[in-house]
Design a protein around this nucleic acid. Sequence first.
DNA 1: TGAGCCAAGTTGGCTGGCCAACTTGTGCTG
DNA 2: CAGCACAAGTTGGCCAGCCAACTTGGCTCA
Lengths: 258, 258
Amino acid sequence: MTDVALDQDRAAGSLYRKVAADLREAITSGSFGEAGRLPAEGALAEQYGVSRGTVRQALAMLRADGLVTSRRGTRRVVLGTARVQSFSELLSFTHWARSMGEEPGGRLESLIRRPADAAEREHLRLEPGTEVYVTLRLRTLSGTPVMVERTVYPPRVGELVAELPADVVSHTEPLREHGILFTDADHTIDVVAANADDARLLGCRRGSPLLRERRRTTDPTGTPVEWSQDRYLPGTVAFSVHNSLAASALSRHARESD
Amino acid sequence: MTDVALDQDRAAGSLYRKVAADLREAITSGSFGEAGRLPAEGALAEQYGVSRGTVRQALAMLRADGLVTSRRGTRRVVLGTARVQSFSELLSFTHWARSMGEEPGGRLESLIRRPADAAEREHLRLEPGTEVYVTLRLRTLSGTPVMVERTVYPPRVGELVAELPADVVSHTEPLREHGILFTDADHTIDVVAANADDARLLGCRRGSPLLRERRRTTDPTGTPVEWSQDRYLPGTVAFSVHNSLAASALSRHARESD
DNA sequence: TGAGCCAAGTTGGCTGGCCAACTTGTGCTG
DNA sequence: CAGCACAAGTTGGCCAGCCAACTTGGCTCA
């Protein structure tokens, strides 16, 4: 909690991220107590040897993560010790599994190349006639089937995926090494009935309910790099979101768009 | 898009919110084109007659909403025209329904007062022996049943809810008038099987799948004001989240916590 | 022609300062 | 004793400026 703490590279590069990481750890370890109060911005600024603006930037992160509230006039209040996953943990099944101490597995069921249909062109923003790469993978946690993943890749990315050996566990890691960056994602979560393939792979009955997550991921230029549809067995997974008056990224939609 | 635009009270109070609202409208109306580029921060600052810092604050909002990317070295890119609901629309079934042009309805099935069980004490942060108010409501959209809502209120809030007439459509609106503020919420989304009550109210079979959203809402002081469990008929609703490397509020959990 | 260098443009990050709006506790007053 | 006024403390918001890191396109040179 002194400026010495900042010498350790707790977080990437910027000062405010280091301050945020330090505060996050202090909060989750209970240093300020449950429902306790944070020191004033000015006090923190002096403690860490940074300006108040930098502290405010750090606190905005914690606010968005739902760790603290903030209100004009009083000190910030510790909301909870909610553990928010990093973006990579959320995007990559492999990272997520490992962070829980489970052994992730993946079996490639099929990989085909074919012209994109209308919906795929729309989501991946492709010209008519462009070919896409479509993968179907069964994902397991410590051996037990958990999720069926259908992913559509645009040509640039699909060519790289097609080169990967069929038994490779993580797709996102090798892609990053080839300069394919995942930085933004839109998720839609709902319920869907298992089709014949789902039932066969997951070992459930046809028509039984699955938790579906559809995700479109883009790189920093806004170019879509992946459109995926994951179907989880009930009870294996739940999704959590925090939002507040200050920042709300969650929304609720009627009807099915697809 | 000139400073004149800011004279209209498009958004509450602060300058950066007005700038953000104006930019949001310009983006969704397609002024910068699909996948087009925004003007530079400096140019926007001059246009709106504010400092660059204020423009950056506005852009941070759009970034969090998934409307634009941002990368050092190049102009911001328009990601999409995703419509993000306001916090109140998300929190209130009534607001949400009306914003879609549907007629919201609600029927109070039961309202009881009883001592909180262990889980409820945990979620609402209550002392042992405290009594809570539990409501069960069927929610309809233009007459058709859509969702069953089970809400647990702490005494302070529950007393007010109990005073409301049984046929009142919105609970959150009268509560706000009594000084009960909803500012932060944690949501967990998964699949669950319908129990006997759900089946009867929603007109589905027992055991058929429902999309469940559990939500704990707090006021600015961090005090829990509501713990709710909503069960939606499949196909009526989907939840959307945007997240990015810059801000991720979404996470994925294993197992059931309850 | 092709590769590499370079400069201009742009966003990320940080500082220091100022004032307004709001909360809370203290102490005074009726 | 209850209620009100006030002052101190705190966060929200805005500004002006500075430098670093990065991208892009054009130019030079082999």
